[in-house]
Design a protein around this nucleic acid. Sequence first.
DNA 1: ATCTATTGCTCATTTATAATGAATCATTGA
DNA 2: TCAATGATTCATTATAAATGAGCAATAGAT
Lengths: 286, 286
Amino acid sequence: MEFSQLRMFQTVAEYGSIIRAAEKLHCVPSNITTRIKKLEEELGTTLFIRQGRGLVISPSGKIFLEYTNQILSLCQDAKQAISPQSEPSGLLRIGAVESSATGRLPKLLSQYHQEFPAVQMQFSTDRWQQLLDDVIHHKLDGAIVAVNHKHPYLNSVEIYQEDLVLIAPATTDDITHPSDLIGKDIFMWPEGCPYRKTLEDWLSEHNATTAITSIASYGTILGCVSSGAGISLVPKGMLEQYNGAESVKTYEFKELTALKNYFIWNKNTGLHRAKEAFLERLKASF
Amino acid sequence: MEFSQLRMFQTVAEYGSIIRAAEKLHCVPSNITTRIKKLEEELGTTLFIRQGRGLVISPSGKIFLEYTNQILSLCQDAKQAISPQSEPSGLLRIGAVESSATGRLPKLLSQYHQEFPAVQMQFSTDRWQQLLDDVIHHKLDGAIVAVNHKHPYLNSVEIYQEDLVLIAPATTDDITHPSDLIGKDIFMWPEGCPYRKTLEDWLSEHNATTAITSIASYGTILGCVSSGAGISLVPKGMLEQYNGAESVKTYEFKELTALKNYFIWNKNTGLHRAKEAFLERLKASF
DNA sequence: ATCTATTGCTCATTTATAATGAATCATTGA
DNA sequence: TCAATGATTCATTATAAATGAGCAATAGAT
């Protein structure tokens, strides 16, 4: 059973004549005769009643025609759905690092969902290493990360700069220099976190080496700092979101601010209308 | 775009591998490669992402896969729907002469509809000549008529005998012989009606020729008789249905009773499950 | 870093299927 | 009864699918 046969069947049923159908389909009548007979043989049913010199659709044919119309119409829809000029649709899987997820992203997501209801969005957070891997292996359609990792399969664009602030308990003496951190407890995300790297680099540049405790949770880090246990470097947006923000002191250092965030996607992915639209809205929102 | 291509696409998408799909489909991988590429070319989209030695479905492919699953599933349904072992479904167009329609038929129709909700029944009444013609030309799937017309395209089975009664106004003198009708006004359906023929034959056998007024409506005929205007010969079931029945006298003559009714259908029609089932129920109901 | 097994792709060839056109058969309407 | 119409059959040609061998790329192991 092939589409061409269904199209022939449909046309013959419509015109009630093989000759007319042949004209319409730009082929010779004998061809249609043969292929419809093959179809009938395969289905084990007679699709048309040959009575006299004419040809009328049979009861089975009538039932089959309903399905045929539906099937051929679905084919049209399928072609339309993936054509470049049609609206974004389908599945869109976006990942982001924790710090990005808490800022302006929620508003963007709901706005996007409203604009493209045909797109089913799946949003998740993870560590940037995992996000990169997932994008490379097409498990995600795109991700927001704070690193500009070069990879032959990855495209990336800068989307915004994340402001970082050093936070300390209100009871701590003012911090004016990296050396002020020596001997203090410092809480950061585990090895690999770009913010941690930024802080580590800043400290080592000023020969202020000190141990860092790893905590893979912004909530816990902020809780530790506000309860007086130690110091951390966190995104400004993250801090604003935290409802214990007034109980910590914040410090901004030129060398510590402005970490760039990127949207990354796999360059081997064919046209992805939903992702393109998302990236557009993402760029526009900053 | 052909079904075989969609099946290949679906299988490759399922296994994420051309080699596995080739095993499943009992063909060689290069064949699948080529035909999927042809499909992609026709659709103007890339269906799979070729990255490394593997193969992952693309965003467009994901959308297209949804449609493909639906289409192939519909094909299964279509084949199933017309297979002989499936339940009757589709359209069933039954015709009947007026006299049959008023009797036990309504109960049968509702019973049938309840038993086979997948069948869309279209019931109509017409004159028997038209019914025959409609069945011959496949405009009806079957009909109930009071004549056993022989025709190379028609099959027929006797389903029941219709009892006929002569009816006259209550004010008329009793009718004991055909000659009693001479000079009376007689109302019958127009030329061609088998009941009229029966009456005409009966009258001419007894040399009681008399004019007959044609009225193509049982309601009107019964109305005329009960209001005292004349005499008629009608099916018993028809009279029972009429709510003015008590205001007419009825007479039964051996020669006038028992007109056979037949179910007819076109013998060139292929297997029609819905019609077969209807005929079965029809036979059983008498 | 190099090797190897795996995987998909290309291409020439074979095979199968579809399309064609002339001839035939059946039927309707003149 | 005959001419016109429409479907079908059949031999032939054209097209498309399937095959199998060789190639290119790459992920994972050594």
